[in-house]
Amino acid sequence: MQRSHQLSAAVMLAPATGLLATFIILPMLLTIWLSFHSWSSQTGFETAQFIGLQNFFDLASSSSVGRDFKTALGNTAFYTVLSVAIILPLSVGLGLLVHQTIAPGGVVLRTILFSTYMVPMIAVSLVFSKLYSPTEGPLNQMLGWIGVPPQTWLSAPQTALVSIVLLNVWQQVGYFTVLAVAGLTQIPQSLFDAAKVDGANALQRFTSITLPLLGNTLLFSAVIAVINAVQVFEPVALITQGGPVNATNVLTYHIRRVGIERAQGGLGSAMAVTLMLALIVAITALFALARARSPRSA
C-alpha cells in the first residue's frame, strides 16, 4: 500500500517535474555552465570552449565590454530598487484606503485599480511613449496647467530610466494593492479595537499592528516585485532600445544584444549569472529582514 502510494506519487509528479526541469531548470544550469565558456550562440552547445573565469574578468575589466555591462547592471539595479521602493509603500497606502472604504464606490474603485494588471506591457509601453512626448505631450501639457515646466521624460538620459520605472509602477501597483488588501483582511479587527482602548493613535496602530502583521504579505510582494523588475524588457525593446546613450540599457536587453546580435553567448551567460548572484543576495537579505522583524517566528 505504502509502496504503491510512493509509485503513483512519482508518476503524478513526473509531467510537472519534467517540464520544469527541461524548460526552466536546464536553461538556467546551461547558463551557469556556459558562463565559464567561450560560446558563439549561433552554434550548438557542443562548440563551447572552457575558459575558466575569463568572461567574469572581462565583465569586471575597464574595457568597453566591462563598462557597458556595469552600466546595464547599474540600470537594472536602479530600476529594481526604485520600482520596489515606489510600488510597495504605494500599494500598502492604497490598500489601507481601499480596505477602509466599505461604501459601494469601493468596489468600483477596486475594479478600476486592478484593471491595469490586464493591460499587456506592450500596450502600457506604447501608450506611455505617447504620453511622454517631449513638446506637446499630454503629461507635459498637464504639468503646464499646474505651472510645472515641461519634462524631458524618455528623451534625456537623466530622466529616461525613471520614466520607465513610472510606467512599470502604473501597471503593477494594482496587483500589489490587491495583495495588500488580502493581507489586511487577515488582521483581526479586535487587535485594532484593543489598541484604541489603550489609547494608541492611528500612526501607532499602523506601526505596531498593521505593519508587523503584514510582514508575510510584504515579503512575498517584495520578492515578486524584485523578480519582475530585474526581468524588465518590453518598454526598453519597444520604445527606447536602451537609449538615450545607454541610459535605459537594462540587463535583459543587453544580454540579448550581446548574446544574439554579437553571438557572444558565454559572455551573456556570465552577465546573467552575475545578476542571479546579486538576486540571491538581495532575496536572502529580504528573507533575513523579514525574519528579524517578524513577531511570530521564534
Binding site: L20, F23, L26, L30, S41, I227, T252, G265, M276
Partner: peptide, 20 residues
C-alpha cells in the same frame, strides 16, 4: 523546490533557452 521555481528569472537565460 517547486516554490523556489516561482523565483527563477527565466528571461535571463533566454539565449540558452533559444538554443535549447
Amino acid at each position: 523546490l517547486f516554490l523556489v521555481g516561482i523565483m527563477l528569472p527565466i528571461r535571463l537565460a533566454s539565449v540558452e533557452l533559444f538554443t535549447l
